[in-house]
Design a protein around this nucleic acid. Structure first.
Lengths: 204, 204
DNA sequence: GAGGTCATGTAACAGGTTACATGATTGA
DNA sequence: TCAATCATGTAACCTGTTACATGACCTC
């Protein structure tokens, strides 16, 4: 029901093609709304039919033509009215956490590796957010920006995305430590009271 | 595709009815997977058909009979195998953040109120998480628990849920400050040099 | 006697995902 | 020559949501 408004909100930054939006939905919007390109194309058609956005074909040489979309007055109003409704609670779907929940009966090393990969992703996202932030601030410090910027919304959602990824990193670090500590424990005594680990100095 | 595994993971805590799971999915699982009761009933039927869970009817007096489900060996194995796959990236859908993104052209006071409500929710969730944590620790301190607990998965996902809600609180606090600071500024000079368009009012 | 909890379900629909297709351009 | 980028789309399918229904019990 509200991919619709996520698209309208994205178009506040200016006109965009379906392809552009697909990229935006992969970067800055992804912190709070996910959508595949196919969803976007379908929804853009509907929004254009409903008059909330206007489509314009841009002919290009050496590239396929593209349809670029702009918010209409009606679209702006609809988005404005949406901000006054009651938001539903956050819906999260995270397979890594399902796997983590089941790590004790599953493949600890594989989960460990997935956590590390997630951390790499988080670092990459943070770097992109940092660049986005610099661009928004445009040389001003945060206080000046907050006081003066015409639009604060994009900065507020960026903040949330950043803290989400920072939290992913911190959590991942802690998970790695814990899994490793427990691995030591269970490797050192593979069976309840079988052989002791070899005493130091004899390993050769 | 993996509501399936979210359910199997939830059944690691022991047998449960559809109704029980609906409650679990509203509390501890909600941090990383959301599902409506109807989804659960449908998926439970499928899992039982596929032999990944076993259903047993418990007859009750003064209450409708219930079907309780248990993980089968096959279900355990499927869940274990799942932990070795590559998780897809987190999918988040948060209407409040869509509204926040659009706050500049929308209803600032309504968004402010929604942020406050979200913070109240976060506090309530944190309280429930804290009780859950106490139950898991069962008197031990964290280090002892981590070293000794049979299953660490539920604790790790609980940690993530907790930090998510803490982050919601911190973010919400900052958003309130920023919106208020900007409200002061714009109330002092209500229009640049013409009337502002009236923001669309909260419908109710 | 009204509303909440226990407990499950059907039906219809809306939303989201996957696979596939096209075809030129650009860069390694 | 291979892969990526630009740019859009169709079709089929799976997932998720909403509305509704049942009916007994318990608490205020």
């Amino acid at each position: 029901m509200s991919l619709k408004y996520a698209i309208l909100a994205a178009l506040l930054e200016g006109e965009a093609s379906g392809y552009d939006l697909a990229k935006v939905f992969d970067v800055s919007v992804a912190n709070f709304w996910s959508a595949t390109p196919q969803q976007l194309y379908r929804e853009l058609d509907r929004l254009a039919e409903g008059g909330l956005i206007a489509a314009r074909v841009v002919e290009q040489q050496r590239r396929p033509n593209k349809r670029v979309f702009t918010l209409t007055e009606a679209g702006r109003d609809a988005l404005g009215a949406f901000t006054a409704e009651a938001p539903r609670p956050t819906a999260i779907r995270d397979e890594l956490l399902v796997m983590t929940r089941a790590v004790d009966i599953g493949d600890r090393d594989a989960v460990r590796a997935s956590v590390e990969e997630r951390m790499e992703w988080a670092r990459a996202k943070l770097a992109r957010y940092e660049r986005l932030r610099e661009r928004l601030l445009a040389g001003r410090d945060e206080a000046a920006f907050i006081a003066a910027a015409e639009r604060i919304g994009p900065y507020l959602t960026l903040m949330r995305g950043r803290s989400f990824e920072e939290e992913n990193l911190r959590w991942g670090q802690r998970v790695l430590e814990i899994l490793d500590r427990r691995a030591e424990g269970s490797d050192a005594r593979p069976a309840a009271d079988a052989e002791e680990p070899a005493p130091p100095g004899r390993a050769g």
